[in-house]
Design a protein around this nucleic acid. Sequence first.
RNA 1: GCGGACGUGGCGGAAUGGUAGACGCCGGGGACUUAAAAUCCCCUGCCAUUCGGGGCGUGCGGGUUCGAGUCCCGCCGUCCGUACCA
Length: 835
Amino acid sequence: MASRFNPLKADAAWQKAWDDNRTFAARDDSPKPKSFVLEMFPYPSGRIHMGHVRNYTMGDVLARYRRMTGHEVLHPMGWDAFGMPAENAAMERKVHPGSWTRANIATMKAQLKRLGFALDWTREIATCEPDYYGHEQALFLDLLEAGLVYRKESAVNWDPVDMTVLANEQVIDGRGWRSGALVERKKLSQWFLKITQFADELLDGVRGLEHWPDKVKLMQENWIGKSEGLQFRFKLSDGGEVEVFTTRPDTMFGSSFVAVAADHPIAQSLATDNPEVQAFIERCKQGGTTAAELETQEKLGFDTGIRATHPLDASWELPVYIANFVLMDYGTGAVFGVPAHDQRDFEFATKYQLPIRRVVSEGSQTAPEFHGTEAYTGPGTIVNSHFLDGLDIADAKREVIRRAEAGGWGTGTTVWRLRDWGVSRQRYWGTPIPIIHCESCGPVGVPKDQLPVVLPEDVSFDIPGNPLDRHPTWKQVDCPKCGSPARRETDTLDTFVDSSWYFLRFASQPSDQPFDKAVAEQWLPVGQYIGGVEHAILHLLYARFFTRALQHIGKIDVAEPFAGLFTQGMVTHETYKSLDGRWLSPEEIRKDSAGAVEIASGDIVTLGRIEKMSKSKKNTVDPEPIVDQYGADAVRWFMLSDSPPERDLEWSENGIEGAWRFVQRLWRLFDGLEDAQGEDKDLDRRLHRTIAGVAEDIDALTFNKAVAKLYELTNAIERAQPSASRNTAIRTLVRVVAPMVPHIAEQAWAEMGGEGLIADAPWPEVDPALLVDDEVTIAVQVNGKLRDTLVMPKGAPKDQVEAAALGAEKIVRALEGNAPRKVIVVPDRLVNIVA
RNA sequence: GCGGACGUGGCGGAAUGGUAGACGCCGGGGACUUAAAAUCCCCUGCCAUUCGGGGCGUGCGGGUUCGAGUCCCGCCGUCCGUACCA
């Protein structure tokens, strides 16, 4: 045996062995229990980064462990390959988005392979290939047929220079992020998916997901934003009506004004012949939408002079304002104000000297006069409200809704924050929407036997706009219904559609349909899904919706695609700044005892915050040279060490060095195996405790704890005298570390004469008898302070433990002759003497 | 503002209400070596110490308990999400 583990040789050899044996190809027909382990598939941006390495290492440990515990594991990998960066690259470097993307995939696939991930590459998919997006087009048509897709005019952010639609995130201070041009609101006909039809289901469903982080569940709940209340009409003094929505119908008798949004029809119609109203509306539109601005922005109102009649008291009139804080796209775009019990209304009423009337008791305060400095929104009894007096808030709500419905002036309603999902994108590098627009037939779905609608290759990116739209022939087709000349839809689908069903395609990929129902159902739901928390809302909500929509149309009998979700932390690194404020990369600086200096200039470098690795801050560390230097196992081990997986992990030179040292320590143990006799009961126990503990930790994804336990076992083995027990411990250790450091484990397994590949070996069995000690250390406290410890046989009777504790020399001294007043004995743990 | 998470040595972090600081990193001392690297051994929360042991310690202030890092109440701070949601 070699004296040192050489990852350069071993990594490649074992990766080849796994490939040659198709070790990680999942078998649909396996009789074993199935386990679907999935990490969010990457966007092929060019190179793997440390975030990928951490994410895929975690999933890999779980996948390998599941295999060892007798599961048939599906652990696939693919590419979320459509999207803007490819088009940007096309514009900047004159490369076709397809060749750019495919080259990136090739690079990144090779990089992933070097990390030795137990991936089923036979199921690799790239969303930019027709044999993926063609099936997506079929699903789109199915949803269209089922009425879950519709077309609607909708306002978008339009960049007039790049001639493209921008996502909200791409609009910075009202300007396009690339062109810098002022962004316009433009109305376009767009395709929408009816996610709102599933709002209730999605809300109920997310609450039932036991193995999701509460944080993500809460974010989704807030995003869906269910509000139950009353929608009702006010009659107006100008003969019209205004519809408002409230979640607090119980406070009807506390209202003192009605307010409508600046773009509400009432405001708009007043503006046509009233310059004052026009000016006010203009003023509302100014003012930013950033957090800071909104917080400080004043509540502004304009009294229209119109009066609204209170629906429960015809003699009561309320002024109608136009107000800057009312949003047209939520509820009805109009509200009624109850200043005493809503903070926003309170501020408005204070400013415009409107009545503030208490209608909910606050402790003993029940008088209508309200003297607080802020609105009271807590619980209480309804007061000063005629027939509602004495009811609690919930009952009063029900009563008002009942009367509104009986009287025909309002209805109990649920309002959602969630909007339907607009999926049209005016871009080239996406799934073509399989629709043909015909002058006489309207939009017609492309017949399924003509799918896929393939992106044309001969496109140019030298001028702005959508290359599909200006392609000379691509959009010219005949209507599939009537045969007359028609126009192909030139919009493509939002890339979030691509990632909304890829897990189904991983589970089953027949050529003639998107997936086979029965086969996919064997694998789904994904048992453990792992990815970044940045996808907590959009991707995870869209994928959940898409699965439910497919269930709705009978394509699959699964409601929730991801049974378990884990959101891992980021990989971070120190940042460095030069004297003149430039970001510096780790390679550009040198650290010494005095601090850090810039190598090129010798100038002092400022150490910045520890931040997520990003190109803009130049604090990235490319994984590939690190793998070259230390091998895959050390990199994997470091990714699992120290930081709890949900928290950020700081990349450090010392950390990877430590991981490298550990890999070599393992090798010395494996390599130094020699015949020895005799039993070492302590080591036996420690081994079995470690097997059980590491198993538990991997199941719970608390890899940092598993790592600590493995260090402890390794320390113990190193210190132990030669014995048969020690040899067993070393042989067993190989299997226990195998999911984390698979290459060295295979090498050791082979050299120890293990059968087959360790990737196929079973997880070592735990002997329950060895999990319990015969002796325990019992802490002895006096008045809660530790004074001594006793070693006692496990399960020693209470009185015996108490006697031993009271007899101990240190305890006698600590008691200073005082008689114990009380003695608490916790079996096998501690004795506390109260003196 | 609202919602959430978190706050433990020089650092990353362990700890079913029961011996706080496991494990790793950094640091110090020693062994091996001509020397270095590698490796191995010892020390390493703070304070004072007669070297037996002692006092103080989990953001701050209270409380519950025989016993609180852990539970409860009130503050302070950091990070994340969200944005006038009626």
